[in-house]
């Protein structure tokens, strides 16, 4: 008799508990907050106005279908540049650049030009330790050429590593790659 009572009690318990997990409660959608969907590169030629020259936009995050936009650069020109990191899947659109600047001691952007591309960059901003961040920079072009420019956002690398403050990435910098985007650049 006792066992029957127990069995019915436990059955009751199961029914009660499983009733709590009602199928009708649809889960809330999660918008990836970590995500950076968009990298915009704005450049201002000397005496000119700011233009969006390069853009990498991937609203699918880990999914495919990235939209890459590139514009040609003028030869022998000095540009002042700034980067913009956005999460366009958030409403309103989240400007991740602000977060990067807030934690500037943990972040650094590296610009790497391929060997054939006559392009150099120079940092224009600093964190509290006097190390560069790379959100603001100067970009100098020389003779007409084509090649790749890679933009890296490194998290928790060693910003004091040798060469890091000149923008030279090496294995001693280490860190995790948050952004790695390659733009095909034409200087004419």
């Amino acid at each position: 008799m006792k066992t029957i009572k127990l069995l019915s009690l436990s059955l009751l318990a199961v029914l009660t508990f499983s009733a709590c997990s009602n199928d009708d409660d649809a889960p809330e959608v999660v918008l990836e907050q970590e995500e950076i969907t968009t990298l915009n590169v704005f450049l201002t030629a000397e005496g000119g106005t700011e233009e969006l020259k390069f853009s990498y936009r991937d609203l699918d995050g880990d999914g495919a279908n990235a939209q890459v936009m590139t514009n040609n650069l003028d030869a022998n020109t000095t540009y002042t540049g700034r980067l913009e990191f956005l999460n366009e899947n958030d409403t309103p659109v989240e400007n991740v650049t602000e977060e990067i600047i807030e934690e500037d001691d943990e972040h650094q952007i590296f610009f790497v030009s391929s060997s054939g591309l006559n392009l150099t960059t120079e940092y224009l901003d600093q964190d509290g330790d006097g190390n560069p961040i790379g959100v603001e920079f100067r970009l100098v072009t020389e003779a007409a050429s084509t090649g790749n420019m890679t933009i890296l956002l490194i998290h928790e690398g060693n910003k004091f590593a040798e060469g890091a403050n000149e923008g030279v990435f090496s294995s001693v910098v280490g860190g995790d790659t948050d952004i790695e985007v390659v733009f095909n650049v034409t200087i004419d």
């Binding site: 508990f17 499983s18 997990s21 889960p27 959608v29 999660v30 918008l31 990836e32 907050q33 970590e34």
Partner: peptide, 20 residues
């Protein structure tokens, strides 16, 4: 009877979904 409930508060898309 098993219920999985992944929180949506993480800001990261759920790896394993809600299921019964």
């Amino acid at each position: 009877a098993q219920t999985n409930f992944p929180s949506g508060e993480t800001g990261v898309r759920r790896l394993i979904p809600d299921y019964d």
